[in-house]
Design a protein around this nucleic acid. Structure first.
Lengths: 214, 214
DNA sequence: GTTGACATGTAATTGGTTACATGATTAG
DNA sequence: CTAATCATGTAACCAATTACATGTCAAC
């Protein structure tokens, strides 16, 4: 019963602003894409389950069968409970680090190539996030100057609270990708040290003499 | 069809050294606990599926129905393929960061408490990993001085290749937890800045006068 | 002879992904 | 009238978690 975070993601988004499943999907595909991705079928299913549990309700109906959901008091209580009382999940699976464990199965050159590739990927991801931050902050500044604060037509598209605190999450992404890049560089250096310690008699990892190739 | 990393975790471990499901479980619960945790039922199931697919085989049978598995050539090929050609999964779900997105639903004091708690947790995790590294490196040094290199009775418990490259993964853990702590400290400071920008008229985040109660 | 470690499995449930299926409304 | 967007759902499958179930062997 621990977890169920999709449920709380939906609850949290609706707590910021009421919306339809379709509205939520936009947020899941943009703001939350790197934090808690979700598919369409998941979201619609969860909305129905939440409604059944009384944590959200259909506040309005629109064209094309649109159902606009809003959190109930019970929903708000559940959200608070989850945020304050529930231990965040500390388990993180990483197939990237899993490969690192088995680097001994590759030649030293292949292992180094793997780590360099990961470093590059992290660096590129870092750049993407930097650009994202620029976009988001410039949009937000424009909004702030309009005096739009959580009301008006754009309220659903760019709810103030979400981008504001979303920026904290984005900063985490920036720091994590930076750390990943630094780590990868460091790890490549370490390979040499391992090579030396284990000697060329150490087996498979020392076999390949060519250091720079593919 | 992307993913299936449990399969490759098992394959990778058997590539380092043959072993039974029971042997593998020890590794999953220790070395791999923070990288790719797996349950007993998963591992035994996967071993059967791997055997059926011809990627591993029962190399030996022992007392109590023990089946010692070893990778086949096909298995080794599949492992290499996964390590070199398959894109690591970049999607990471984080209910921790998900909560950060919704911090606007809490009072400023509650939000700060949440971030401080996360910072503390990261710091404690960092310490745990530091101690783990000490243990592992001292054990490994002892092993090295014994001249035990991947053979003998302890070979299965502490396969050289695993701890060697496992240390790279451990270092990633150290850097990640350090970064998490730094980020949390930074984020707490940011809350004040947000408070100022949004003013006390900004809504819910400033509403709650009672900062400690339910 | 009983306890604890060794050893392997099944079943039920949950959460997530992919693919499929359908239809209403609006803008050009 | 036609294409894009809006809008909601179902079904099949896969991966992971939890709980249950069973039995052997060694040491004391």
């Amino acid at each position: 019963m621990a977890g169920m975070s999709l449920r709380h993601a939906v609850l949290g988004l609706l707590a910021e602003a009421p919306g339809s499943g379709y509205d939520l999907m936009r947020v899941f595909n943009l703001s939350l894409a790197n934090v808690w991705p979700a598919t369409q079928s998941q979201v619609y299913g969860e909305l129905n389950r939440l409604a059944e549990a009384g944590l959200v309700e259909v506040a309005d109906e629109g064209p094309r069968g649109r159902k606009e959901y809003a959190v109930t008091d019970a929903g708000r209580a559940e959200l608070r409970h989850w945020m304050i009382d529930v231990e965040p999940n500390r388990v993180q699976r990483s197939d990237l680090l899993l490969r690192v464990f088995f680097l001994g199965q590759l030649s030293r050159a292949e292992a180094a190539a793997y780590l360099r590739r990961e470093g590059d990927l992290a660096a590129r991801e870092h750049d993407v996030l930097l650009k994202l931050r620029e976009e988001v902050t410039s949009e937000k500044d424009a909004c702030d100057e309009d005096g739009e604060r959580g009301s008006g037509k754009d309220g659903g598209k760019d709810p103030d609270g979400l981008t504001t605190h979303g920026l904290l999450a984005l900063e985490w992404g920036l720091r994590a990708t930076r750390a990943a890049k630094d780590w990868a560089d460091w790890a490549v250096e370490q390979l040499d040290a391992i090579e030396l310690r284990e000697g060329s008699g150490g087996g498979r990892a020392g076999d390949a003499g060519q250091l720079d190739g593919g």
